[in-house]
Computed example of a mutant assay.
Amino acid sequence: MRLEGYVIVSGDGMLADAGGSMPDSLKFEADYRFFSTALDAVDVVVHGRKSFEDQPNSPRRRRVIVTGKVASLADDPGNAKATLWNPAGAPFEAACAHAGVTEGIAAIIGGPGVFAMFLGRYDTFWLSQAPRVRVPGGHGVFPGVPERSPEDILRASGLHPTDTRVLDPAADVRVTAWRRS
C-alpha cells in the first residue's frame, strides 16, 4: 500500500478548533476541490471518529475508521464500506485487507493521532496551509504542534518538500507535497 496524508492547517499548525471541529475559517473551495479530487483516486480512506470528508462521493469510498471501541477489526454497522480498526489489536495491513483493499493508495485524513501513527510510513504527505488563519487553542495536525511546526515534524520523519501549488491566491492557500526520498 502507498500511504498519502491529506490535511489543511492554519498558520499556527491547527486542523481543528478547541472543540475538535474544523473551523469555517479553514474551509476554502480550492482546497476542497483538491482534496475531493485526490480522494476520488484512492483505494481506501483512513481516519479517526471525528474526521470525515463530507463530500458527494463519501458514501462510495471504502474506509478504515480508527477506534478503540473494538478489540481488533469489525464491520461498521452503520456503513457497509467501512471497517472499524483498533491498532492495538491488528496491524494496518489486516485492517486494509478486512476492508477489501490489499494494494493501491490509502489516504490518511486525520485526526492528529491518526496522522502521527503513520509519520514513519507516508510516501507523500499533502500539507495544505492557510497562513493567514489562526486557530487559538486548537488541535495541532500532529502531537507536538505548535511547539514544533508541522514542517519540522514532517522533516524529522524523513519527508522533504518537493513541490508547492497555490490553490487560492487571494487567501494565500497552498499545498506542498512532502515526499520520502
Rank of each mutant, 00 (worst) to 15 (best):
4 E>T: 11
5 G>M: 12
5 G>K: 04
9 V>Y: 01
11 G>L: 08
11 G>D: 04
11 G>A: 12
13 G>K: 00
13 G>R: 02
15 L>Q: 07
16 A>H: 03
17 D>S: 05
19 G>P: 02
22 M>Q: 10
25 S>N: 03
28 F>D: 08
31 D>F: 01
32 Y>L: 13
37 T>L: 04
42 V>Q: 07
44 V>L: 11
44 V>D: 03
46 V>G: 08
46 V>K: 11
47 H>M: 10
47 H>G: 10
49 R>A: 04
50 K>D: 05
53 E>W: 14
55 Q>N: 06
57 N>Q: 14
59 P>S: 09
60 R>W: 14
60 R>N: 14
60 R>A: 15
63 R>N: 07
63 R>E: 02
64 V>P: 09
64 V>A: 15
66 V>Q: 07
69 K>Y: 05
70 V>F: 12
71 A>V: 05
72 S>C: 07
73 L>N: 14
75 D>K: 15
76 D>T: 03
77 P>L: 11
80 A>I: 00
81 K>W: 01
83 T>R: 09
84 L>E: 03
88 A>N: 07
88 A>Y: 03
89 G>A: 10
95 A>I: 10
97 A>R: 15
99 A>G: 07
99 A>N: 05
100 G>R: 08
103 E>P: 02
105 I>H: 08
107 A>S: 13
108 I>D: 06
110 G>P: 01
114 V>R: 00
115 F>A: 02
116 A>P: 03
119 L>A: 09
119 L>T: 05
125 F>R: 06
130 A>V: 01
135 V>M: 06
137 G>E: 06
142 F>S: 04
142 F>P: 02
143 P>G: 11
148 R>N: 12
157 S>F: 01
158 G>F: 05
163 D>E: 13
165 R>L: 10
165 R>G: 01
168 D>G: 05
172 D>L: 07
173 V>S: 05
176 T>M: 12
176 T>L: 11
179 R>L: 01
179 R>Y: 00
181 S>D: 15
181 S>E: 15
